[in-house]
Amino acid sequence: MSSIAPWKQALNSHIQSLACPTFSLATVSQAGGISVPHVRTLVFRGFYAELPVNKYNPVASNTGFRSNLIAFTTDNRMEKSRDLGGLEGITSSSLPTVTNNVEVCFWIPSNGENPVIGKQWRIRGRCFVLPRDLGSQDTGAKETKKWLVERLSNDNGGDGSDFDFAKEYKAHFGNLSPSLRGSFRNPLPGAPKEFGDGGLTPKSPIGNDQLDNEVALSHFRVAVIEPTRVEYLDLEGPSRTVWVPVGSDAEKSEKLESFGKVNGIWREVEVWP
């Protein structure tokens, strides 16, 4: 069972103030032995197991569960999945991969008149594209489910052993707009149009009565980021705070072992802006 991180409430509060909760995702892929950086703008889909309430979503999600995992959705055919190592699910060999190390950045603008003053959250972590069927006997699915259960907590006590992963997958799909749902049954993203549509002609939006569309669901995935270092910069203060897991590589590499205060598994250190 995972405990709620000390930085989570403040981060979530700031995200809720955004008209559109977007963040930047930085990844590094390998091409011909060369490291290639990529930055993308994604929509924050809540912390995993805490899908935001959407009155237009016809699919109910799990309730009473919590996690520190940042969730977003993606088309599994996109370059993004390949940049993350092409790994779907967690195995003993995927945990230490370099390619699934990412950093995200949230910018929270000030309510004042100066547009360059605000708050910034930078979060490093490991990103995993979750398998569609976490109930299968596939090794990646079984180990991913076990990994997730250990990172969920239940409001009534206990872990995430009673969490319905299939229900959560469907609820994330239902939480998207009909036009975005429909995009998951479009031709291969990024492919030149001269190659043709690959048998997948652009389709219309997927309404609430079409949430079982197999083509779209086969491409749709939920991804999560497990934070391994969190940094909060308040330019209005100014102040800057860093959280790292106690005993982690981040704590050791930044030589923070003797500073700040410990809250659960996290060390919180005030640093100069």
Results as ranks from 00 to 15, higher is better:
residue 148 L to I: 05
residue 134 L to Q: 02
residue 130 L to D: 02
residue 140 G to K: 13
residue 147 W to L: 05
residue 132 R to Y: 07
residue 140 G to W: 05
residue 155 D to P: 00
residue 137 Q to S: 15
residue 137 Q to H: 14
residue 140 G to L: 08
residue 156 N to Q: 13
residue 141 A to N: 06
residue 147 W to T: 07
residue 152 L to N: 07
residue 124 R to N: 14
residue 143 E to Y: 12
residue 136 S to I: 10
residue 147 W to K: 11
residue 133 D to A: 10
residue 154 N to C: 09
residue 141 A to Q: 03
residue 131 P to A: 08
residue 127 C to H: 10
residue 132 R to T: 12
residue 153 S to G: 12
residue 144 T to H: 10
residue 137 Q to V: 09
residue 152 L to Y: 09
residue 153 S to N: 03
residue 132 R to L: 11
residue 146 K to V: 13
residue 140 G to V: 07
residue 153 S to V: 01
residue 155 D to F: 02
residue 158 G to L: 01
residue 126 R to E: 03
residue 125 G to N: 00
residue 128 F to N: 05
residue 155 D to N: 10
residue 140 G to D: 14
residue 139 T to Y: 07
residue 130 L to P: 03
residue 158 G to D: 00
residue 130 L to G: 03
residue 148 L to E: 01
residue 128 F to H: 11
residue 157 G to F: 01
residue 124 R to Y: 12
residue 157 G to D: 00
residue 146 K to S: 14
residue 140 G to C: 11
residue 132 R to C: 03
residue 148 L to G: 04
residue 155 D to I: 02
residue 127 C to I: 04
residue 136 S to G: 09
residue 153 S to K: 05
residue 150 E to F: 02
residue 149 V to D: 11
residue 133 D to G: 03
residue 126 R to S: 12
residue 150 E to D: 14
residue 145 K to T: 11
residue 157 G to A: 01
residue 126 R to L: 08
residue 149 V to L: 07
residue 131 P to G: 06
residue 133 D to F: 12
residue 128 F to L: 06
residue 135 G to T: 06
residue 157 G to E: 01
residue 133 D to M: 09
residue 134 L to E: 04
residue 146 K to P: 00
residue 137 Q to Y: 11
residue 134 L to P: 03
residue 129 V to L: 09
residue 139 T to Q: 13
residue 135 G to C: 07
residue 158 G to C: 03
residue 152 L to C: 05
residue 150 E to N: 13
residue 154 N to I: 01
residue 144 T to Q: 11
residue 142 K to H: 06
residue 138 D to L: 14
residue 152 L to A: 06
residue 139 T to L: 13
residue 143 E to P: 01
residue 155 D to C: 02
residue 126 R to F: 03
residue 147 W to E: 09
residue 139 T to R: 13
residue 130 L to F: 10
residue 125 G to C: 02
residue 143 E to K: 14
residue 134 L to I: 04
residue 124 R to I: 02
residue 144 T to N: 09
residue 133 D to Y: 11
residue 142 K to G: 01
residue 136 S to V: 08
residue 139 T to F: 07
residue 124 R to A: 13
residue 148 L to D: 03
residue 146 K to M: 11
residue 128 F to R: 02
residue 125 G to K: 00
residue 145 K to W: 06
residue 131 P to W: 05
residue 134 L to F: 06
residue 152 L to V: 08
residue 138 D to Y: 07
residue 149 V to I: 15
residue 124 R to G: 13
residue 143 E to W: 11
residue 151 R to V: 04
residue 154 N to D: 07
residue 135 G to P: 02
residue 132 R to S: 10
residue 146 K to T: 15
residue 154 N to H: 13
residue 156 N to E: 10
residue 126 R to N: 11
residue 138 D to Q: 15
residue 158 G to Q: 00
residue 138 D to G: 12
residue 147 W to F: 15
residue 126 R to C: 05
residue 152 L to R: 08
residue 153 S to I: 01
residue 156 N to H: 09
residue 142 K to E: 12
residue 154 N to Q: 04
residue 156 N to G: 08
residue 151 R to F: 04
residue 153 S to R: 06
residue 139 T to C: 06
residue 153 S to F: 02
residue 143 E to D: 12
residue 141 A to M: 10
residue 147 W to H: 15
residue 124 R to H: 10
residue 154 N to A: 05
residue 129 V to T: 12
residue 140 G to M: 08
residue 127 C to K: 03
residue 143 E to G: 00
residue 139 T to M: 12
residue 150 E to H: 11
residue 156 N to A: 13
residue 136 S to R: 09
residue 144 T to Y: 09
residue 148 L to F: 09
residue 138 D to A: 14
residue 127 C to T: 10
residue 130 L to Q: 03
residue 140 G to P: 04
